[in-house]
Write a protein that binds this DNA or RNA. Structure first.
Length: 869
DNA sequence: AGACGACAAATTTTT
DNA sequence: TTTGTCGTCT
């Protein structure tokens, strides 16, 4: 992602495109287009088109006019997008800087840049307008900040800052901040911004619903405060440009001239604001008359879309790629309707369906297609594949007694695959809700199976990172009051609530930033000596650091700041178990700054790119939510927890009704279509939810799978799954409110088993079930199974399975198998454990250590989880 | 300022 | 059941 300061476009208005003509000679040699041209062989179809199927090729070559590419899962969507861009460049239709290409995630943007680079033969430095909606929004807003009442060095607040700010405002209004939680209001505001609504545009009902009817005032106050702070939130990155475009037709016109081609990835995920943004940019200057340029407010009761009338002529060349069946972000404002309505928004649009799937077996596709067919209002696609190997495995459905057994059986299957030389990297466990992950993590730690959790707490969200960033922000932008407040008393400087309030009030009264107010207060007599001295030091420190900003390399400056402020010192003195990790993280932060030119550039990067790269070299099973799995693929996929209430999730049903259910079904579809070869679905008959054991009913989605492509795992199969009798048998099980399920008789727990199941496998299953029951109720009956935290020896089964070595790397816990070599530790050694802190080794048995921890008491731990203190 | 107990809340998540 | 937040007490 290109950082701030902005890269200056190397083209200007006069090198306007000559559609279908040769590209003009480039100012500097060896541009992308030139190279692509060179790579093109004679009169044959260019190389980059080779290997595309007819539909893909059509999608690439239909460059003019509006195009909607309905790209089913695994049909080569990214390939089409990137090839299309390469094609536009290679045929001289536009310069790189004349193509606007938007994605949702940084990852997708990165991937596209990379792949275009590969196609075209060089790094894509010349595509300044390829990025996420937000990063492009920032770029626009930096250029025209003054039109939104901001300066171009505005800061971007993240969710945490926003919540703190809102909380202040709620308190300032004299409202009870418990009755009206700031977090909730932040989400409400976000929802409004997703719809592109400013304070004056929100529906009256919405405005009244919060804060004793003060919703609108509060929203207004929030926006005013942002302006004062010279800051904006994520939503503003879209909303401000929309308002600027509407209020300043000349500015909009500039971009109309600029962007000859617009490409949008994952169009089904666009929200209303993004839609409006795109529509504004997609209006050609000639078509101005059709849509009033000054149009702003959306009339009440009228859908925002309806306010923007379709433009029928002089359409820009917009190409949206997406899949309505994979729309899973409705809950955060995405409007599936945007994609469903595309050909009405853009009359005469070419709609191209990509239905040839290159990813999955026929069984997997068959199952997924049959399931998704239960949704209404689809644009409709029928995926097909030519991979039809009779040896392909059917989709397997497994039953387990509870989540522990589910995790155990999945673990066994993974080990079985591993022994058949499958890579762990090719396997994934996709869960509906993150609490489900824990059971798998616990199990894999005891098995010594490498795994990787994707999508956990992110690097930049950690406390120490955010604190350090706050210091940098104040140095880079002295007016950043939120950052100032965050760290003014971190480390503790004796500046309590009262002192901070005083600084705050002074700042308000003098209409200056808090840092400045602090400096003034330190010079006056209005404060008690102690806080006054502390403030003086803080102010002097920041003044000094700010003075260094242009003369000192930014990584060096960062180190100076953390050192002189006493921040690193604070963690060095901290005796808690995770303090060393935090210091390590701070070092990592400094290291990562090296890649950026300046402190500013770095801050911008962090604001927009909240992810940190994962360790890809390690062979590990991936564990993640279904949501974060979108766009990925794995040879083998495990989908646990297919039970009513969990999947579909009860809350989605309660709050979303039928459309909620349909979104859950799309989520199921996304899950199924992640698998290339093997797909295992699981449901349990009992699950602990919020500490209570609940007996559960198999998901209705299981009943929506086609029998022809699905096989119920028999007892005694290698996965340790439990027998369930013949597929399609309907035994009247427990009352199932959704009608009899063919899984009822398996999932309903002990006591309701039919004697139909007299097979040996079934009996074995029953025996296992009894064991599982013993284990589960063990804690009640005194039958103990010790399991505390990770890394601790499970003193029950599995202890003899070999040793485990693990460590934590930036949010990914990595458990590593190791041979049964003797432990490197001996009795009396001083060691450190991530969770329990420091302690002395009391006993060593192979690789299992008994340690007397200073704080946590005596624990048994595997040696891989401790380091020499 | 820090420790402790009471209390509510516990999908999905990018930027 | 667990987690985090808030208020109160020392």
């Amino acid at each position: 992602m290109s950082g701030f300061p902005d890269d200056i476009p190397f083209f200007d208005e006069d090198d306007a495109p000559r559609p279908n003509s040769q590209p003009a000679p480039r100012p500097a040699g060896g541009g992308i287009a030139a190279r692509a041209m060179a790579a093109r062989g004679g009169n044959r179809a260019p190389d980059y088109l080779a290997g595309l199927n007819p539909e893909q090729r059509l999608a690439v070559e239909t460059t003019e006019g509006p195009v909607l590419v309905l790209a089913g899962a695994g049909t080569g969507k990214t390939r089409v997008l990137t090839t299309r861009i390469a094609h536009i460049l290679a045929t001289g239709r536009a310069y790189p800087s004349q193509i606007l290409a938007v994605t949702f995630t940084n990852k997708a943007a990165r991937e596209m840049k990379h792949r275009i680079g590969v196609l075209v033969g060089e790094a894509v430095e010349g595509m300044p307008w390829l990025g996420t909606f937000h990063s492009i929004g920032v770029k626009l807003l930096r250029r025209h900040a003054e039109l939104a009442g901001l300066r171009s060095d505005f800061t971007i607040l993240d969710t945490d800052d926003v919540i703190r700010l809102i909380k202040q405002l709620i308190q300032a209004e004299g409202l009870d901040d418990k009755r009206w939680p700031a977090r909730q209001f932040a989400q409400i505001i976000d929802g409004w911004k997703n719809k592109g609504l400013g304070p004056s545009e929100i529906p009256e009902g919405d405005a009244r619903a919060f804060a004793n009817g003060k919703g609108r005032e509060l929203y207004k106050a929030y926006q005013d405060r942002l302006t004062t702070l010279n800051a904006c939130d994520f939503g503003d990155l879209l909303c401000h440009p929309i308002r600027i475009f509407r209020a300043h037709p000349d500015v909009l016109k500039e971009y109309h001239r600029k962007f000859k081609y617009i490409l949008v990835d994952e169009y089904q995920d666009t929200n209303t604001a993004q839609y409006m943004w795109l529509r504004l940019l997609a209006q050609r200057p000639e078509a101005r008359g059709h849509v009033p340029a000054g149009q702003t407010a959306v009339a009440e009761g009228q859908s925002p879309q309806a306010a923007v009338r379709p433009v029928s002529e002089n359409q820009v060349n917009i190409c949206c790629v997406g899949d309505d069946d994979q729309s899973i972000y409705g809950w955060r404002g995405a409007e599936v309707d945007n994609i469903l309505r595309f050909d009405k928004d853009f009359p005469g649009a070419t709609v191209i369906r990509l239905e040839r799937n290159y990813r999955s077996t026929a069984h997997i596709l068959g199952a997924a297609s049959h399931l998704i067919a239960h949704n209404e209002g689809r644009l409709g696609k029928t995926l097909f594949t030519e991979k039809a190997d009779p040896d392909d495995a059917k989709v397997m459905v497994h039953a387990a007694w509870d989540s522990e057994e589910e995790a155990r059986a999945v673990g066994e299957e993974i080990e079985a695959l591993q022994s058949r030389r499958h890579n762990l990297n090719d396997m994934a466990i996709l869960v509906r809700a993150s609490f489900q992950m824990r059971e798998f993590e616990d199990r894999f730690v005891t098995l010594g199976l490498n795994y990787r959790v994707i999508g956990g707490p992110r690097f930049y969200e950690r406390q120490e990172i955010r604190d350090a960033m706050a210091y940098f922000r104040v140095v880079a932008q002295g007016a950043d009051d939120l950052a100032f407040e965050r760290i003014v008393n971190v480390p503790k400087r004796g500046l309590g609530e009262a002192a901070i309030r005083q600084v705050h009030d002074t700042a308000r009264a003098m209409r200056v930033p808090m840092l400045e107010a602090a400096g003034k207060l330190a010079e006056s007599d209005e404060m008690k000596p102690k806080p006054r001295a502390a403030l003086r030091e803080v102010a002097a420190n920041f003044a000094r650091w700010q003075g260094l900003i242009d003369t000192t390399p930014h990584t060096e400056l960062a180190e100076i700041i953390l050192e002189e402020s006493g921040y690193t010192e604070m963690w060095k003195n901290d005796k808690s178990a995770d303090a060393p990790t935090r210091l390590e993280n701070l070092k990592e932060l400094i290291r990562s700054m090296e890649e950026y030119e300046s402190l500013r550039g770095f801050l911008e990067h962090v604001a927009l790119v909240m992810d940190a790269e994962q360790n890809e070299n390690l062979d590990a099973v991936s564990i993640m939510t279904l949501h974060s799995a979108k766009g990925l693929e794995f040879d083998t996929v495990f989908l646990p927890g297919w039970e009513e209430g969990l999947f579909p999730h009860q809350r989605a049903l309660d709050e979303g009704g039928r459309s909620g259910l349909e979104e859950e079904r799309r989520l199921a579809y996304v899950g199924l279509t992640r698998a290339k070869k093997n797909l295992h679905l699981w449901f349990t008959s009992n699950r602990r939810i919020h500490g209570l054991w609940q007996s559960t009913i198999p998901s209705r989605f299981l009943d929506e799978l086609p029998e022809a492509h699905v096989e119920v795992a028999e007892a005694g199969s290698s996965y340790g799954g439990y027998g369930m009798g013949g597929f399609g048998e309907r035994q009247a099980g427990r009352q199932n409110p959704y009608g009899a399920s063919r899984f009822d008789n398996v999932g309903s727990g002990a006591g309701s088993f039919s004697n139909t199941y007299a097979t040996p496998g079934w009996q074995r299953a029953q025996q296992n079930r009894t064991e599982a029951t013993d284990r589960n109720w063990g804690s009640r009956s005194g039958h103990s199974v010790e399991r505390i935290g990770y890394g601790e020896v499970d003193s029950g089964y599995g202890a003899g399975r070999g040793s485990v070595k693990g460590r934590t790397i930036e949010g990914e816990l990595v458990a590593k198998s190791v041979s049964d070599s003797p432990s490197p530790f001996k009795v009396g050694d001083r060691v450190f454990h991530q969770k329990f802190g420091n302690g002395n080794i009391a006993a060593v048995e192979g690789n299992k250590l008994t340690i007397d921890f200073d704080k946590a008491g005596q624990k048994r731990v595997l040696d891989g989880f401790v380091t020499t203190a």
